[in-house]
């Protein structure tokens, strides 16, 4: 039984934002709503790492637990989806989510947020699959077309893996074995050496 999962290999992610753009293009997500984003830690310092983050489709999803109108549901292949017709835009899920996945399209008077929008693992929503209404509310339903999320399928370095958790785990395990040990063998350390940031060259003016 497939259990859908994302995995981002921080050793490979080059912060090209291709996944972000692919997501926006696939689902025609409006400006200001980021279903997926790339987070960079220690930007500009040797050893910087990037990771692509979206909804992780938790097994025990906090958003599901806190939603006052119970608009979330989990499909049989482990994708956490929500019903925009039920959503009241309260924003509880945004506070509950450890990944910052829930997005709100509006910011206006009285804290008006609009219906929550988040990564659907390219699985649409409660509307009829591949229908116009489903696309408008949730974006394209790629799972119903026998495809996997656009972000993972187009990742240029194959840092972002998406699909059945077992297969993803196998791919990652094999990759780590090929690298040699752990995750360091292919990473920054091999390319640029382990060490401190280089001291400013002598004579550098500022």
């Amino acid at each position: 039984m497939a259990r859908m999962k994302f995995l981002c290999d921080a050793e490979r992610c080059i912060e090209c934002n291709g996944c972000v753009t692919a997501c926006k293009q696939e689902h025609e997500v409006p400006w200001g709503v980021n279903r997926r984003r790339v987070v960079t830690i220690n930007d500009g310092v040797p050893g910087e790492k990037s990771i692509s983050v979206a909804c992780m489709h938790c097994s025990d999803a906090p958003c599901m637990a806190v939603c006052p109108v119970d608009c979330f549901y989990r499909t049989e292949d482990g994708v956490v989806l929500h019903d925009k017709d039920l959503c009241i835009g309260c924003g509880y899920c945004f506070y509950a989510c450890p990944f910052g996945a829930p997005q709100f399209p509006q910011a206006g008077a009285f804290g008006l947020r609009g219906k929550m929008d988040k990564c659907t693992f390219c699985a649409g929503g409660p509307e009829k699959d591949r229908s116009e209404e489903e696309f408008k509310k949730y974006g394209r339903n790629r799972l119903s077309e026998g495809k996997l999320p656009a972000c993972a399928e187009m990742c240029s370095t194959k840092a972002l893996l998406g699909g059945d958790g077992d297969v993803v785990a196998d791919i990652y395990r094999e990759r780590v074995l090929k690298r040699g040990k752990g995750s360091e063998v292919w990473g920054w350390g091999t390319a640029y050496g382990q060490g401190k940031p280089a001291a400013a060259p002598a004579g550098a003016k500022s």
């Binding site: 400013a200 060259p201 550098a204 500022s206």
Partner: peptide, 8 residues
């Protein structure tokens, strides 16, 4: 402001 570039 970033250490990606050196001070010159």
């Amino acid at each position: 402001v970033t250490e990606r570039v050196d001070s010159g």
